[in-house]
Design a protein around this nucleic acid. Sequence first.
DNA 1: TCTTGACCCTATAGTAGCTATAGACATCAG
DNA 2: CTGATGTCTATAGCTACTATAGGGTCAAGA
Lengths: 142, 142
Amino acid sequence: MKIGELAKITGCKIVTIRYYEKEGLLTEPERTKAGYRLYGKEDLERLEFVLHCRRHGITRSGVKKLLAFRDKPQPDCSWITALFDAHIANADEQIRSLEKLKRHLEKLRNRCVGGDSGATCGIMQGLNNQELCCACDRARIF
Amino acid sequence: MKIGELAKITGCKIVTIRYYEKEGLLTEPERTKAGYRLYGKEDLERLEFVLHCRRHGITRSGVKKLLAFRDKPQPDCSWITALFDAHIANADEQIRSLEKLKRHLEKLRNRCVGGDSGATCGIMQGLNNQELCCACDRARIF
DNA sequence: TCTTGACCCTATAGTAGCTATAGACATCAG
DNA sequence: CTGATGTCTATAGCTACTATAGGGTCAAGA
């Protein structure tokens, strides 16, 4: 199949497929005489694997490692569980950060009731003044 | 004060201050004969404002709009509450996505108990097979 | 006076993970 | 044959910075 069909099946954009190839995530496919890419079942499965990883937020370099393992399984796969553990911990931290952020935003948001004069907009005042806003420490919320 | 002191006070990196200036978030400061930037109280407050916004995850373009309003308050500030509402909704959605992601990751993670042979690593199998992993739909988790 | 080290300057390129655009060739239906 | 669609490459753009190279400035100590 040509790239358009592969894109349609997988839901991955054509440019993204080409991008993955350039980045070494996908193997270079066959070509027609005219230079069009031709993909087979293997290519499709590899792309699905990549997309599945990406949907789980695994980075390109992580996907590359997993692909290498997939191409050539090793006896020891403990690094994979470690990668996942780290990734889970990371997601957890992001969630906590975002929840904190949301609380801050809501606090700020509630300073303005609408219909307010711009000059005295409570949100602006809060943004101008750390103390007015919240106990917003210097550390990045993210 | 020179840029180094401003950086120390605000906890913002020197390069970032220069970057904000180039992007038009900070006004161009005075200079010494030698070309060193010289900042005053106004500049400090403006930078604090920017940092405060950024810590709340407001984008550069959002910060720019807020700065314009700060420089020249308008009677109508309803767009600010709208901006915050959208931002809060966004944070909320991100949280939900991440929670879903985390559940997926944990499910996958639990397929491998360690000490496993690489060839039969449960995580790899899960990544290879959408169904084995979870009810992972095609839509991006993020 | 010379030197050393800390500070500052500009300009450019790099990061992740794509997306968008320009300009050219291929393929197919009518 | 023509127009529409599909494909190709190469390059630039996006966010929000960070890193690097290669230089100038300034104050204190020997």
